[in-house]
Design a protein around this nucleic acid. Structure first.
Lengths: 177, 177, 177, 177
DNA sequence: CATGAATGAGCTTTCATTCAT
DNA sequence: TATGAATGAAAGCTCATTCAT
């Protein structure tokens, strides 16, 4: 994909097997359309994460691991699309218009609650601000997944064990023990 | 600022107190202009970091701290401009065209070498891949500085002690000890 | 009309009662548009010339006369437009891109064949190079039609008998008999 | 050369070893500059033609031949520059602004007088309009010189005997005798 | 509901012209 | 006289948006 600004409505319409005009029956403008698509994707991740599997452990550490796994996989699958919105430039728009919308906020809230649970279970330090921890958490996931994708393009190793590595950086940092 | 795609040459010219045509005396096209501006900023950071101050400690931990301080401050001062380039969408352009240029590469190299030194001094685990560590390092700085800026806009607390916090996340992670 | 370089897409669009963007739905750029318009005109002349009228004499001399009449009339009707393309500056573009295209070549070929027929019927000297004769033929038509148009602008006489005069110059030259 | 519209003032200034600004000390605008250059060239031709060589025959036929030779040679030497102005598109400008100027008019007058002399000497038919004859004369020279130049570019034969051929077309036409 | 031709504001880029030096 | 950096009007082209069908 080409990024928000380089992706035309025609591109999207074509991919969706619709005519340009039809798109405008459903979305009042380009922004709305994009944010709707974004929301849709986020909903996908959210429902996957919330999906209750029987026998699934509910402790914070397991849920953190699960979140990293699910979101990494999700990120990789939708890399092109999400790359558009992972831009800081657009994050402003997104945050201002849509992350305040239910889906985006729900995702952030999910993570925040997860972190609070982790603090309660003494997995994450109680001294830290949950919002801050969340940002670091997301940033590390994003950075390492993107790096991994770049590696992949260069033809290098696979994605095996990446979520373990991410979690390690997140929880224990880079220091020597 | 508005990001690469939304910022017009006219905007830039006006801000620089120039006429549109004047810009084109110095830069052959929009890309060239942007990358040149970007490079200039990076050069500023690079030279600030390399600036030898007498009595400055040269151990890895101090240098890491210094880097976080300098780059955070730098980031904050140039937030608008750098926000443009922190966009993933544009990172592709930038990385492909200019981060491979001396300045961008030098900065990355500087960080990588710093991390290697830290590994040698047992500040950072020898088991980790320096490139990966570097990405995590940058991501955490970026995420927390941006969050801080957002806070500031919302009128909240100041930036005091931020570099300590960043370093803490980076080195020790979020886990309880 | 103003010539290729001075005629803007906006001009053309306006004249055609279209918006600028509409023009670009049909032609990918200015060149393409112009050459298409040119081709269209040429096609018009070509089909007029090839139009078989019953009882129309097929000897070379009659066909030469007919060609002069048709092309003079055509030239006059489309003077503004064709003036653009009679520019040597643009002839390069046109010749390189479109006269090599079927329509332009067909027209040239038509004239060449006509001249060869005339040579076979001893109307034109067999000693002369048909290509050269063709260029002279075209040049004389162009020169005298243009002069006539200039006269007209100055308010002088009409176009009566012009094709006879053209043919006379072409076949017999300016010499006294 | 690139033609009137594609040739920039900077191009010309550079070629003349001047700075852009300097050009504007002598010519009030691009048109004026160009027409001045054109005039200069024409003056060159005019003085060459008027150059009295001892023992030079003064009969009309000889002078016509001489004119064809001189102007062909001149045309070839200055082809690039003259091509600019041989464009019909620009001829309007030239005719309106400068051919009415002394030099351009002088050249035309010279040819007209030459033709009248030829009519008096019964070389050219008295029945023909001298202005018209002049246009045909110029057109044939131009057409065949241009064709010859094109041939040359394609690597074909040389320019030998061209002025004889031109004169032949002009005086006797293309007809079989 | 669906279409896609038509729109035109707005972008990047060029270059004749000016003017402080 | 000579300079050339600065100017900004105007060009070609794109694409989000509309609307008659």
């Amino acid at each position: 994909m080409k990024g928000y600004h380089k992706t035309t409505i025609k591109d999207i319409a074509q991919e969706a097997q619709y005519a340009v005009g039809t798109v405008y029956l459903h979305f009042k403008d380009k922004d709305t359309l994009y944010f709707a698509l974004f929301k849709e994707k986020m909903k996908g991740l959210l429902s996957k994460i919330n999906e209750e599997k029987p026998g699934q452990p509910r402790d914070a550490r397991s849920k953190l691991r699960l979140f990293v796994e699910e979101s990494s996989a999700f990120f990789m699958e939708n890399q092109d699309f999400l790359r558009i919105f992972s831009s800081e430039e657009d994050r402003l728009l997104v945050e201002k218009k849509l992350l305040k919308s239910s889906t985006g906020r729900q995702l952030r809230e999910y993570i925040t609650l997860l972190i609070i649970q982790a603090q309660e279970e003494s997995v994450i330090s109680r001294a830290l601000d949950p919002g801050q921890v969340r940002e670091v958490f997301i940033a590390i996931i994003k950075a390492l997944v993107l790096e991994q994708l770049a590696e992949k393009e260069r033809g290098n190793k696979s994605f095996e064990g990446m979520s373990g590595i991410i979690l390690r950086y997140f929880l224990n940092g880079a220091a020597s023990e």
